[in-house]
């Protein structure tokens, strides 16, 4: 029996790695997203507010020292104001003698607020200093590592989960439909092997492929140009990874049990996976989405796989964070797998 398992697994693995289109959609396509988004958002969150400046003086010097703004110098007020009016700059600081004048754009309230606050704050601080009086109220600020992540930190687990999910669903569904349509299932049924041998060898190939995908995606994201930093508890993502593969394998088997043709299976798999990809935080952090959308996304296994992968790969959560994603994924696998086994047929009839 183990001979049958090994040779079936080998046959399926060869079929997978010899198919260029499958390889493209399993490896290159998700990597393209990782590379494009990774490079596109590389500097997000690090950019400074640019404001115009005319003249010179201690206020402008102090503004530059805050490190929060970048000054763009203009020779005349008119040119600078035009830039503000055109919406190219949020504000223009004009320093002549002891007077500091700020002109700001009314369209972007929050940026205007930041610019106003900054310029006013710096000016007042200089005023206090000039008065020679010790400040009455002390102000202290310190940096805290916040929960929001650099783009590559959420892109990697998200795109990786998505790529693995797509491959698992399509692989299982198309194998099932193709084998039924071409009578390979009948041929297997005529051989003295058990259905569980067939099922377990297909699952083994799916897991092996997912493992290679994970290595490739993380490997690329770790390159200095993208700069992924893995947390200390990254290895806790392995159970989430395995259960996620299992859940999507089950979904693929269900689609494969329902659909009669490869075309129908491809369509069905897309209908299942695409909305999940967009609503589960694959391409953007789901925390930024409106609350109702976050609730909807909790119904998707991909969301929980994403969460689990993110928690351990980059957020460094401890083992207690395993509970929710693992429980949801196991539940999904059991329910979907049960339905698939009920719907399954060996032959079209």
């Amino acid at each position: 029996m183990s001979g049958a398992f090994t040779s079936l697994s080998k046959a399926m693995a060869k079929g997978f790695f010899r198919d260029k289109a499958t390889l493209f959609f399993s490896f290159i396509f998700p990597l393209m997203f990782l590379v494009i988004f990774g490079l596109l958002f590389r500097d997000a969150g690090a950019e400074k507010i640019k404001i115009g400046a005319v003249g010179d003086g201690p206020v402008l010097a102090a503004l530059e020292q805050t490190g929060a703004v970048e000054l763009e110098r203009f020779d005349s007020v008119e040119v600078g104001v035009r830039k503000v009016r055109d919406g190219d700059l949020p504000g223009l600081v004009e320093a002549t003698g002891d007077t500091v004048r700020l002109r700001f754009a009314a369209s972007d309230q929050s940026r205007a607020g930041i610019v106003r606050g900054l310029v006013a704050g710096v000016t007042q601080e200089l005023n206090v200093r000039a008065s020679g009086q010790p400040p009455r109220f002390a102000f202290a600020a310190e940096q805290v590592e916040d929960a929001s992540l650099k783009p590559i930190q959420y892109l990697t687990p998200g795109i990786m989960s998505w790529g693995i999910a797509v491959t698992a669903v399509f692989g299982a569904a198309l194998t099932m439909v193709n084998w039924r349509r071409k009578q390979v299932l009948r041929r297997l049924r005529l051989a003295p092997i058990t259905p569980s041998t067939v099922l377990s060898s297909r699952l083994t190939v799916t897991i092996a492929v997912a493992f290679v995908q994970a290595l490739v995606f993380v490997g690329v994201a770790l390159l200095p140009i993208f700069g992924l930093r893995l947390s200390g508890t990254w290895w806790l993502s392995i159970p989430v990874f395995l259960l996620g593969v299992l859940a999507f394998f089950a979904i693929g088997m269900l689609i494969g049990a329902f659909c009669k043709t490869e075309e129908a299976a491809t369509g069905a798999a897309n209908i299942v996976v695409l909305p999940m990809a967009f609503l589960s935080g694959t391409f953007f952090p789901i925390d930024a989405a409106p609350p109702w959308l976050q609730s909807v996304s909790k119904a998707f296994p991909l969301r929980h796989m994403n969460d689990g992968m993110m928690d351990f790969l980059v957020r460094g959560q401890d083992a207690s964070a395993l509970l929710v994603p693992c429980a949801v994924l196991v539940g999904f696998t059991l329910v979907v797998g049960f339905i698939a086994s009920k719907v399954f047929t060996w032959e079209d009839s």
Binding site: K14, G15, K182, Q183, V184
Partner: peptide, 10 residues
């Protein structure tokens, strides 16, 4: 069986 009952790409 029908002449398509083969494993793909083998």
């Amino acid at each position: 069986l029908q002449a398509s009952a083969f494993f793909e790409k083998l």
